[in-house]
Design a protein around this nucleic acid. Structure first.
Length: 693
RNA sequence: GCCGGGAUAGCUCAGUGGUAGAGCAGCUCACUCGUAAUGAGCAGGCCGCGGGUUCAAGUCCCGCUCCCGGCUCCA
């Protein structure tokens, strides 16, 4: 007996058909073009394969490859195809997991032999064959015990482990050609739909990210619906490689890291140091304008300080061994906060003084495992643009708001215009996420494969409430957090209001990272998107319910009694090292005029113009313009080339003409292909004016 | 820390067991030049460090240091 089912399409059309209805067939009937472009479908908002069958009334939307949902499906399917290729080339390989990720996909394998770069080329070639063969992807739901048996027979212990953790009735086995895999799906209708695919690198990765587990070989790749999109992406990777701050840092003579000093320790060369000085000056000025006091604190302190602060107990693994002096132990500082607290504590504090804001460019040292160091981005000694705000509870929201605005203002000065803002909450129930903060994304985070702590813990969830999440996935964390539940809720709601007031009107949808907070309080992180759209962590604004208690911080209120004090840690740029690395890549080394270590290179055409060149240089320098004269015995063309390679914003060319007319001839960097940028001769005075705007 | 790949002149890199190379940069000399490289010459090396195999090691083996791609962690 067939049943008539009602199908509501995206455009509102309703189709009635005798069921069951196969989606691919329905798609084909609607339109040939649609069928060719479709990669999957959504039934009642849920993604599903085109090979699925419809048995009930439903709304149906076909996902074509121009939709954002299509990309992960492409990539996930690409991962399966790669796994199939690897199993063909290396029989006996055991499969780990193979998800789609932000810019592509990966698959983890336990290959008996090693996988090397030239071997992945063979894998890629094999993948092409699989694509050409155009195997359909099909799936069937399997009873748990049968699914387990299936993978036992195939000698896939990792898959078996995954199935054992699944609820009964949810295991699905996908098959394409001779290959089958445990998977949630959905997938492309067939392997032939995969057009642009490229394998990128091989790396080790622990099974389920745990270093106690065996290490698997992870192959990274990327995939796009068309060859062109793939080529564009590969071009972007090339561009990123050109901007690599380690490469530019060497070429532009900005900094170095040397064996004799040790890994993760930065030597700032004169040009890098000058840029840093400019940023520091700007930073200090802005802080003074906004009611911060600047402080300086030492690099080491008695171990007792770190015992009081709790770092000795909870942060020891990141700290260097004690330094013994006169039979007393001193520790190199990993953070600045305890010092700022000591300054705060030198007096009784009145409510009239609050908030007190101490800022410091504080250099800290943290032990980082050798494998994680990376240029300027991840180092062992770095200078934080740190500050601590001591305030009354009722001032918290205002201070938070100021911090967020301040951070965005500072970052915008460096031509960052796109931000990713994340609220990391604690383990207590909070209404923060109910306050209009992108609940859909939150939900997606909790149930989906996207990102955030839910996935980090390997949670597969259909949970709705915050409390449930904690109880269900983080019971062990319930008691690991400092402070009272009420304080967390108070702080998180304050932050949520700030985000609503400041961030949402800017068109930014804040993200929420459940239980992403530090144990001592919730935080807001701000990431910037650089010129290539890559994200960099800069600002972090963190509440602290812990240190005020440990140091017994308080203030005297209008009632003459002691009151509990709130404390906020915050960094706007993060650290000078990381931020500098980020700036180098953002600007590709072409620092804007105000940051450029050399702003003007004067290029005399012949030796007889040297005097005039120096005369101009003196005048520019008197006007605080950073100027150099290229008086080498080179041709003008060579000097221009070198100034271009040094990425100097202005070249001033002087020869007979200029000397006679008392003018300068200006060439802006990168003028090569755009003659409009080539300015005509002008007076030195006019040239100097361009720096004053 | 772990898996994999590396380290040769200041820089970028070639060198498959038989006398260490190129380009650029540097130095010297000549050229005095109009919008991205003038020419010639000279100099430059514990081939990352230590051990081993060999008649012979930059090259093969072992250990270490550091770098790169990841895992993990974070400013």
């Amino acid at each position: 007996m067939s049943k008539t089912i009602k199908i509501t399409l995206k455009n509102g059309d309703v189709i009635e058909k005798d069921g069951p209805v196969k989606l691919s067939q329905l798609c084909q009937e609607i339109g040939k073009k649609l069928f060719e472009a479709a990669v999957a479908a959504k039934i009642n908002g849920k993604l599903i394969d085109l090979s699925s069958v419809l048995e009930e009334d439903a709304t149906v939307e076909f996902i074509t490859f121009d939709k954002p949902e299509a990309l992960p499906i492409f990539r996930h399917s690409a991962a399966h195809i790669m796994a199939q290729a690897v199993k063909r080339l290396f029989p006996g390989t055991k499969l780990g997991i193979g998800p789609a990720i932000e810019n592509g996909f990966y698959y983890d394998f336990d290959t008996q032999g090693r996988l090397t770069q030239d071997q992945i080329e063979k894998v890629e070639a094999e993948m092409k064959k699989i694509v050409e063969a155009d195997y359909p992807f099909s799936f069937k739901k399997e009873r748990k015990d049968l699914a387990i048996k299936h993978f036992q027979d195939q000698n896939e212990p990792f898959k078996e482990e995954l199935i054992r953790e699944l609820p009964e009735g949810t295991a699905r086995i996908y098959t394409q050609g001779e290959f089958s895999d445990l998977c949630r799906g959905p997938h492309l209708p067939s392997t032939g739909k995969l057009k642009g695919v490229k394998l990128l690198s091989v790396a080790g990765a622990y099974w389920r990210g745990n270093e106690k587990n065996p290490m698997l070989q992870r192959v990274y790749g990327t995939a796009f619906p068309t060859k062109k999109e793939l080529d564009d992406y590969l071009k972007k990777l090339e561009e990123a490689a050109k901007r690599d701050h380690r490469k530019l840092g060497k070429e532009l003579d900005l900094f170095s890291i040397q064996d004799l000093t040790g890994p993760g320790l930065i030597l700032w060369h004169p040009k890098g140091a000058l840029i840093r000085k400019i940023v520091e000056d700007y930073w200090r000025d802005e802080h003074l304008k906004r009611g911060y006091d600047l402080v300086y604190t030492p690099h080491i302190a008695r171990v007792d300080l770190w015992k009081t602060s709790g770092h000795w107990d909870f942060y020891k693994e990141n700290m260097y061994s004690p330094i013994e002096v006169e039979e007393q132990e001193f520790m190199l500082k990993p953070m600045n906060c305890p010092f700022h607290i000591l300054i705060f504590k030198t007096k009784r504090r009145s409510y009239r003084e609050l908030p007190i804001r101490y800022g410091e460019l504080g250099t800290v040292y943290r032990y980082e495992r050798s494998g994680v160091l990376h240029g300027l981005m991840r180092v062992r000694g770095f200078t934080q643009d740190d500050a601590h705000i001591f305030c009354a509870p009722e001032q918290l929201e205002q201070e938070m708001e100021s911090c967020v605005r301040f951070a965005l203002d500072l970052l915008k000065r460096f031509e960052f215009h796109e931000f990713v803002i994340t609220l990391s909450t604690g383990p207590h129930p909070s209404k923060a996420w109910e306050m209009g903060l992108n609940p859909e994304e939150l939900h997606q985070k909790l149930i989906g494969e996207t990102s955030g702590s839910a996935r980090r813990e390997g949670a597969v969830s259909r949970v709705i409430t915050y409390q449930d999440i904690v109880d269900r996935f983080y019971p062990e964390k319930k008691n690991e957090f400092a402070g009272e539940k009420e304080e967390w809720v108070y702080a998180e709601e304050a932050v949520a209001r700030v985000l609503q007031k400041v961030v949402i009107p800017m068109g930014i949808n804040p993200e929420i990272d459940i239980i992403g907070a530090a144990f001592y309080g919730p935080k807001i992180d701000i990431k910037v998107k650089d010129a290539l759209g890559r994200e960099w962590q800069c600002s972090t604004i963190q509440f602290d319910f812990n240190l005020p208690r440990r140091f017994d911080l308080n203030y005297i209120g209008p009632d003459g009694k002691e009151h509990k004090l709130y404390m906020v840690h915050r960094a706007m740029l993060g650290s000078f090292e990381r931020f500098f690395g980020c700036l180098i890549e953002h600007y590709a080394g072409d620092f804007p005029l105000w940051l450029a270590p050399v702003q003007v290179k004067i290029i005399p055409i012949a030796e007889r113009h040297h005097d005039y060149a120096y005369q101009i240089a003196e005048e520019l320098k008197r006007n605080q313009i950073r100027t150099e004269v290229d008086d080498r015995g080179e041709k003008m063309q060579a000097k221009i080339r070198d100034a271009e390679l040094e990425k100097i914003p202005y070249m001033v060319i002087v020869g007979d003409e200029e000397e006679k007319n008392k003018t300068v001839n200006i060439r802006k960097r990168k003028a090569q292909s755009d003659l409009r940028l080539l300015q005509t001769a002008q007076s030195v005075h006019d040239f100097i004016k361009t720096f004053k705007t």
